[in-house]
Computed example of a mutant assay.
Amino acid sequence: MVTNSAAWIDAPYAELVVRDSPYPVPGGGQVVIRVEAVAINPLDAIVQSNGKLMYGWLDYPVVLGEDVAGEVVEAGPGASRFALGDRVVGYAIGLEKGRNAVAEGGFQHYVILDEALAAPIPDEVQFSEAVVLPLAVSTAAAALFESSQLALDYSTLGASPSRSDFVIVWGGATSVGMNAIQLARAAGYRVITTASPRNHARMRELGAEAVFDYGASDVVASVVEKVAGSRVAGIVAIAVGSAEPSVAIAAATGARRVAQTSPSVSFYDQPRSGGLSRARAKLLARLIWTNVALQTRCAIRGIRARFVWGSAIAGGPVGAAIWTDYLPAAIARGQHILGPRPRVVGGSLEAVQEALNLMRTGVSAEKLVIELR
């Protein structure tokens, strides 16, 4: 009999604890994979820090984790994309409303994936290299292509059509940013991005036409000058503090849509405990005030700025276009670079909590990965 274990979070704000977990049973269109590597996302640390502030529907205990890579060991009814033993990378969506927050949480040895949110991994690609992809590429795709966000044309994704429109990615060295640059280029758009100077060469390798230092005092003016009257199809604002300059660029260039992947405040700046502490009250006040101020500026300028959820692509045409039609061939050909680079920080589920703590201290242009041995 196959046994399973997971890194559980038993209550809001609690430390993760590794113990036995039920072996998952796949439903229609789902597969079970034996997990070989998991990656840490800011979302995991935010859920742990926020309690039920954002994910009020979670019924604890639950299993966090979105990024997984491993081998298919079982297929549910109607699941036919993969054979047993196939090496895959996939997006575990157990945290989302209406999903199974135990069986579909990534931080465990056996997990359920929707086969529509998975892609094969070539033999020469290590699990630790591929596992950086799922939430980041899904969030980037949702920001760029969902009709409620930038609504860009993805009908020729991967065929590298030539378009004159710009897409601006504020925060190109982030996990989402690296994927947004590549997806926008694969759909034929010209890309301008921002990053710290040490990452500029990498941004150009991914396809950015121009890169500017987000810390420069004249960065907004530099981006606007580079656009030089061309149409801006939309702006993806990534990381804390990205929304305000992105809206300023939109106002100056005539862009009408900004896709926000992060709030204007850091949810790490609060105690990991319940109750309305002074720190949490100040954070919530800043969050409300900055959002009201931002949306007021957007309303005056005719700009629509909305928050992005990576899971928005699940079950829809964008998800199929990315995970079924684009990624398998793009990964196999090396057309889509797997980034950011992995930083392996452990070899067991016990390392997940340490990795979450490390993420809170700041991680740039790399992704924390744990290999399950």
Rank of each mutant, 00 (worst) to 15 (best):
Y189T: 01
Y60I: 10
S175G: 15
G188I: 06
M54E: 10
A140D: 03
F267R: 02
G346L: 11
V111S: 05
K367A: 08
A228G: 07
A83R: 11
A7I: 05
E205G: 02
Q295E: 12
L183Q: 13
S266Q: 08
E66A: 14
S262C: 03
L338K: 06
K282V: 13
L338I: 08
F107S: 07
A136G: 13
Q260E: 14
T139F: 04
S138P: 01
A330Y: 06
Y91F: 15
E205D: 15
P22V: 08
I121R: 05
Q108G: 12
G362H: 07
S196A: 15
P245V: 11
Y110Q: 08
E36K: 15
A252D: 10
Q48C: 02
V132G: 10
V219W: 04
L338N: 08
V308G: 03
Q30R: 03
G51E: 10
N41D: 09
G98L: 01
A79S: 12
A355I: 06
S262W: 11
V73G: 03
G65H: 02
V344Y: 02
Y268G: 10
I46E: 14
V62Q: 04
G339C: 13
I121C: 09
R257P: 02
R257G: 01
R19G: 13
P263C: 09
S128Q: 13
D153A: 05
E115R: 00
A83M: 02
L368Y: 00
L84M: 12
D325I: 00
N357P: 00
T324M: 01
V369R: 05
N291H: 13
G56F: 06
P317M: 11
R198D: 12
P24Q: 06
N4E: 11
V352Y: 01
S21Q: 07
L144C: 05
V227F: 04
I331K: 00
P317L: 12
G315H: 01
P42S: 12
F212L: 05
N179L: 04
A255M: 04
P245H: 07
A237I: 07
A305I: 00
E124V: 11
R256E: 14
G254F: 07
E205F: 06
Q353F: 02
D86Q: 04
L283I: 11
N179G: 15
Y110R: 11
A312F: 07
P271C: 11
I249D: 04
L183C: 11
L113Q: 03
V223F: 02
W8R: 06
V223L: 14
F166Q: 04
N4R: 08
A250R: 10
R272E: 13
K226E: 15
L64A: 04
V258L: 05
R343T: 11
V35W: 03
